[in-house]
Design a protein around this nucleic acid. Structure first.
Lengths: 104, 104
DNA sequence: CCTTGACACATAGTGACGCTAGGTATAGCG
DNA sequence: CGCTATACCTAGCGTCACTATGTGTCAAGG
C-alpha cells in the first residue's frame, strides 16, 4: 500500500474507525490494521497528530483514563464528528465511482 | 471533489485515460473530466508535469503533431506503461477494498 | 534483576506531490 | 480586433503523511 494513497482519506478512516465506538489512539491504529487486513499499518506519528487535529476541529472529544497502570486518551465521535463521517462516506463513494469510471 | 483525494492516484488516472488510446495533454484533461462526469476537473499545471514525469519514467512516449495549426504533443502508453496501468488497477482495488472495510 | 518488546503517548522536521499563478501562442467568432 | 477555446510550459507554494526521536509503564525471558 503506497503511503500517498491515503492523502485526503486519513481523516475519514480514523472517523470510520471511531464510528464503531470510542477507542484510544493506539487501539485506533490496531483496529485500522485489523479491519484493512494489514493494508493500513500506520505509524503512531501519523495517527496522533490527526487525532489532535480532529479534536481541535470539534469532530472528536477525548478523556484520559487509566488501564493497568497505563494512561490512555480515549477518543469518541462528537455529534459533528458523526455528521462528518456520514459526509466522508458519501465523498468516498463519489471518489471511488469516479476513479473506477476512469480506470475501467 | 477535494483535491487532496487525488494524491497518489493521479498517475493511475492518467495512465487509465491513455489506456484507451493515444491522446495529447489537453485531451487527457478533457477526457478525465468527461469520464468522471466532472469530478476530475484538473488544471493544466497539474497534468502536464505528470505527463513529463511519466515519460521520463518510461511509462509514456510522446510525439509532436500538428492539427489545424496547433502543435500537439501526443502521448501513448509504452509497454511498461501498460504494465504499470495493470498494476495500478490492482492497487486501486486493494486500496478501495481496504477503505470500504474501514468505513463500512 | 535487567534487558527486550509491546503498549501508549507526543512533536519537530522532512519530503512528496498536486495546485496556484503566471507565461507563450494559434484559431475562430462576433 | 478583442474574447474565448485550444494547447503548451514552469517556478514556487502549501498541505499533509511520514521519519525520527523522545518519554514512560508493564510483562516476559534470560
Amino acid at each position: 500500500m503506497k503511503a500517498e494513497h491515503l492523502k485526503g482519506h486519513l481523516d475519514s478512516l480514523i472517523l470510520g474507525t471511531l464510528g464503531a465506538g470510542p477507542a484510544h489512539g493506539y487501539a485506533v491504529i490496531e483496529e485500522l490494521k485489523r479491519r484493512s487486513a494489514g493494508a493500513f499499518d500506520l505509524a503512531e506519528g501519523t495517527v496522533y497528530p490527526v487525532l489532535h487535529r480532529l479534536e481541535a476541529e470539534g469532530l472528536l472529544a477525548s478523556a484520559w483514563t487509566t488501564a493497568s497502570g497505563r494512561k490512555r486518551r480515549v477518543y469518541r465521535l462528537t455529534r459533528r464528528g458523526r455528521t462528518a463521517l456520514d459526509g466522508s462516506r458519501r465523498e468516498w463513494q463519489a471518489f471511488a465511482h469516479a476513479v473506477e469510471a476512469v480506470l475501467a
